[in-house]
């Protein structure tokens, strides 16, 4: 694994920093400097709240290298409150069944290892269920 590459993405991985379009106010994640809504230049940083809901989900039983320790694990598409959708693992589920529309929030967790090659771990965002009283407070 490549340390500089993961380091370059630390703002996205640790804090969900994307961009906001100065022309049409679209929220953009991941940052791409060009607004996918209006094609205008969009370089203004924007930190997402980390709140969202499950758009779709599945379970990975046959993981790629670096993910063996956590398999089987749940991967979901999360529709963020501000609009964009991200792909991320769900965590802290306990016995809770996952459903489309389930409210979730971002947390920072270990994503993968390099199989003891150099001991490198990649951390980043996952999402966990939001408790009902938290949903009410967020509203």
């Amino acid at each position: 694994m490549e340390i500089p590459r993961h380091w370059r993405l630390k703002k996205q991985r640790y804090a969900l920093v994307g961009e906001v379009c100065p022309h049409c106010d679209a929220k953009i994640f991941p940052p791409r400097d060009v607004c996918p809504e209006c094609n205008g230049e969009a370089k203004t940083p924007y930190a997402f709240s980390g709140r969202g809901e499950v758009y779709s989900h599945t379970t990975v039983y046959n993981p790629p290298a670096g993910f063996q320790d956590s398999a089987p694990y749940t991967v979901a598409m999360i529709k963020l409150a501000e609009g964009p959708v991200v792909t991320a693992q769900l965590t802290d589920l306990g016995d809770q069944a996952v459903e489309i529309g389930m409210p979730v929030e971002m947390v920072t967790r270990k994503l993968r290892s390099d199989g003891d090659e150099r001991g490198l771990l990649v951390y980043g965002y996952k999402f966990r269920p939001l408790e009902l009283h938290q949903v009410a407070a967020a509203d």
Binding site: L9, S56, H57, T59, P63, S70, M77, K126
Partner: peptide
Amino acid sequence: ESAMATSLDSDYEAVQGLTPVSQAALLMRR
């Protein structure tokens, strides 16, 4: 699995442990 996952977005899909078959499963569920 790792070789096949290079067809995904490496920084924002594969890094989360997504594979091509699980990506198709996300579509199917939706």
